[in-house]
Amino acid sequence: MPVTLPATPPDKTHIATLPPFTGLTLERITVVTCRASAEAALLQMLRHDALGFDTESRPTFHKGQNSEGPHVLQFSSMDRAWLFQSHQQETLSAAFEVLQSAQVAKVGFGLKSDLGHLGTRFGIIPQQLIDLDHSFRAQGYRQQIGAKTAIAMLFGQKLAKSKHISTSNWAIKQLAERQLLYAANDAYAAICVHQALLDAGLSR
C-alpha cells in the first residue's frame, strides 16, 4: 500500500504507545576486527546501491572539550550491519572506501556532525550522502525529523533509543551487546526509512 505521510509528525506521547520496531539481531551484526574481515565486509557493502550510515563517539563532559570521535562507524543494508571501531586501524580503509564511493549512497539522519568528526579525525570527505532530514523537509516538514519520528510515521512502530546507551563509552575496545544493537539499528533504521520513501516515490 502507498505510504501517506501525516500532516503533523507524531509526538513523543503517541510514539510511546506504538509497538516496537523490529531491528537487526546480533547474528546479523558483523563487528569488523581484522584485515580479512574488513575485505570481506567491503565486498559485501559495495554490492549495495545504498547503505544506512551513522557514527558513535565517546561523549564529552566538559565545556569546550573536543570530541575525539568517531569511535564507531556503522553501515547497514536491509538485512545486515557492519561495525568498524576506530582503534582497529587495519580495518578502517574498508570503511573509508565505502564512504568515498560515489556508487554507494550513504543514508542517515542529521549527518552534519558526523561529517565534521570524520573530517577532523580522519580527513575523510564522504561522497554520495543522503541526509534524511533533507528528504523530509522536501515533503514540507519544517522541524527536524529524526529516526524515532520517521519510524513512527512510516511504519507505525517505536524505535528504541536509549540515552543511557547513546551516551555510553563508545571508545572501549569490547563493545557491549546493547551498544552493538544500538549502533547497528541506528544505521538499519535509516536504510529502512530511505527504502520506504523510495517505494512511495518520496525520495531519490
Results as ranks from 00 to 15, higher is better:
D54Q: 07
E56Y: 01
E56A: 03
E56L: 07
T60E: 12
H62Q: 14
N66G: 01
S67T: 14
E68F: 03
E68L: 14
G69E: 01
P70R: 05
S76A: 15
S77W: 02
S77G: 07
M78T: 10
R80Q: 15
L83D: 09
L83F: 01
F84T: 08
Q88D: 10
Q89S: 09
E90G: 05
L92T: 03
L92F: 03
F96C: 03
F96G: 06
Q100W: 00
Q100S: 09
A102I: 08
A105K: 13
G108F: 01
G108L: 11
L111P: 08
S113W: 01
L115C: 14
L115R: 13
T120C: 01
T120Q: 10
R121F: 05
R121K: 15
G123C: 11
I124Y: 08
I125K: 13
P126E: 07
P126Q: 08
Q127K: 10
L129K: 00
L129Y: 05
I130G: 07
D133I: 14
H134R: 14
R137A: 15
A138N: 12
G140W: 06
Y141M: 13
Y141D: 09
R142L: 14
Q143S: 14
Q144F: 10
Q144R: 15
I145W: 02
A147M: 14
A147H: 00
T149M: 04
A152C: 13
A152V: 11
M153I: 12
G156S: 06
Q157K: 15
K158F: 09
A160T: 13
A160P: 01
S162M: 07
I165T: 11
W170Q: 07
A171Q: 13
A171W: 01
I172A: 06
I172L: 10
I172F: 00
Q174H: 13
A176D: 10
A176I: 02
A176W: 03
R178S: 15
Q179W: 09
Q179G: 05
L181T: 06
Y182T: 08
A183K: 04
A184H: 02
A184K: 02
D186K: 09
A187V: 07
Y188I: 11
A189V: 06
A189D: 07
A190K: 00
